[in-house]
Design a protein around this nucleic acid. Structure first.
Lengths: 142, 142
DNA sequence: CCTCTTATTTATCATTTGATAACTAAATGA
DNA sequence: TCATTTAGTTATCAAATGATAAATAAGAGG
């Protein structure tokens, strides 16, 4: 197993991951938000509470654009902006009740597609996948 | 290892894969093409020869838009459209010499970043990653 | 030959995304 | 206190992407 062979394998693998992720998430997002807005909500959902700067860094989106999208999400009542008590320049962003509900809906659509995909997996298969994910997460996708 | 736990693990894993892929490929594409055009070239590179319909299906891009992007790539001399000998409605798309060169450049940038990322991996680590990729590719990301 | 279907193109338009300059307001620190 | 830095906003513009209608042109099947 030389490194170059592993690289080619990785290219093919990541392409598969992207394709399958796309299949699982396709149309799972509400039509009322754009893809970028969905990505932001997803990030907030798993990392909240976050600041606009966190979002900007993590999504690779310039601050003015992040600010614009957060304003739209706020207008749609999907997030809440809370002033930081100590540093009044900072904000804390959280999903609103509506935002939580919207993301839960998406996640449950995605989850049921995932369950369909692995419906024929045995207990041993699940165990193997679990371990494989651990290895890759730790050694490659850290 | 119940399926729901595995699902949550998968969500976190795919998010890591996307983040790392983004780090590896960031700025690796030539400035002369857009992201969608790069995605198309990458698909052609690993799957050629392909037809415009293949690209449309695989990229989830509507035919008129696929056609437009292929025209732009063709104008940039990065691909060649060859008429199918049997069915004259069909086309065969291939990378041109320039297209090959451009993709090779990108791939080698990405590869060197990958090598940097795994520079401290032992022979056993590489072996483990290789097997983990095989398992996931076969059982989950098929 | 005629109709239907398939593969692709052209044209057009709305929306989204990305980039930049200029701004406000608050903290920081000499 | 005053200059500088940090966090976020507003405004604006260009470019990329997505969606749709309508066209061309060739194969397929009766």
């Amino acid at each position: 197993m030389d490194k170059q062979t592993l690289f080619y394998k990785l290219v093919s693998f990541t392409s598969s991951v992207h394709r399958v992720t796309h299949e699982l998430t396709k149309n799972a997002k509400s039509d009322s938000i754009s893809q970028a807005q969905y990505n932001i909500l997803e990030y907030i959902a798993v990392s909240q509470p976050v600041t606009p700067s966190d979002i900007s860094d993590c999504q690779g989106m310039a601050m003015p654009n992040t600010s614009r999208e957060l304003r739209k999400l706020s207008e749609k009542k999907l997030i809440e902006k809370i002033n930081h008590p100590e540093d009044r320049r900072k904000q804390t962003i959280r999903l609103s009740k509506d935002g939580e509900a919207l993301m839960n809906e998406s996640f449950s659509t995605i989850e049921s597609r995932f369950l369909e995909r692995i419906q024929h997996a045995s207990k041993a298969d699940l165990e193997e996948m679990d371990q494989a994910i651990d290895i890759l997460q730790k050694k490659l996708f850290y």
